[in-house]
Structure formats: structure tokens, C-alpha cells
Amino acid sequence: MQTFLIILLVIFAGATLFILAKGVIGMAQGKDITGMRSQELMRKRVLFQAVAIILAILLLLVASN
């Protein structure tokens, strides 16, 4: 169970990092005039980050038992 949670945590942390980098690169290029793409990426980043935090809490709970 711990191994599965660690793998999921790494996947969601990596997804968060990927979306963050994609957003920063998109902002640096200045192609998104309206900001709609930036908002979409921000929502995805927050979602992936929340899932990663929940997985980290579950991992700590499983490890403490």
C-alpha cells in the first residue's frame, strides 16, 4: 500500500511540476493575450497539487500505523 501511494504521489507531484513549467513558459512567450489558457493551467495545477497533498497525508497515516 505504501509503495502504491508513493508512486501516485510522485506522479501527481510530477504532473504539478509539468503544468507549472508549462504555464511559466506560456507566460514568458506572451502568446496568451486573454489569459484563458493561463487560468486553465492554474486550475489544473491547483487540482494536481491538492491531490498530491492528500496522497502525502494518506501516506503519513499509513506509515504511522
Rank of each mutant, 00 (worst) to 15 (best):
L41E: 06
I25V: 15
R45F: 14
Q49H: 13
I33N: 12
K22P: 01
T16E: 01
Q49E: 10
Q29C: 06
D32Y: 00
I25L: 14
M36L: 11
R45Q: 05
M27Y: 11
L61S: 10
T34H: 14
G23K: 06
G14R: 08
F12L: 07
T34Y: 15
V10N: 12
Q29M: 09
G30T: 08
I11G: 02
G14F: 02
L9D: 05
Q49W: 13
T3P: 02
S64Y: 12
G30A: 01
L60H: 13
S38N: 09
I6T: 07
G26F: 08
V51R: 00
V51T: 05
V24Q: 02
A63N: 15
I57F: 03
I11A: 06
F12A: 01
M27V: 12
K31W: 13
Q39S: 14
Q39V: 13
A56H: 09
I33M: 12
V62T: 11
K44V: 04
E40A: 08
G14N: 02
N65F: 14
L8V: 01
A28T: 11
F48W: 03
L9A: 09
G35N: 04
T3V: 07
G35A: 04
S64R: 15
I6N: 10
T34I: 04
N65K: 09
G23C: 03
A50I: 05
L58S: 09
I33G: 08
L17N: 07
L60V: 04
V10K: 11
I54R: 07
A15P: 01
A50E: 03
I53C: 07
G30Y: 12
M27H: 05
G30K: 13
I57V: 13
K31Y: 09
R43I: 09
Q39G: 12
I33E: 15
F12N: 02
A56D: 05
L41Q: 06
I54G: 04
I53A: 09
Q29R: 15
M1Q: 07
A28S: 10
S64H: 15
K31Q: 13
T34L: 08
G26N: 07
A56L: 15
V62M: 01
T16M: 04
L60Y: 07
F12S: 07
R43V: 04
M1Y: 11
V62W: 00
L59C: 05
D32H: 01
R37G: 10
E40V: 10
A56F: 08
G23W: 04
L9K: 11
L59H: 06
K31G: 14
F4K: 02
F12R: 01
V24K: 04
F4M: 09
I7C: 03
L9R: 08
E40I: 06
M42H: 03
L61M: 14
A15G: 09
G35R: 03
T16C: 06
F4N: 00
Q2W: 01
S64L: 15
T3R: 12
F18H: 11
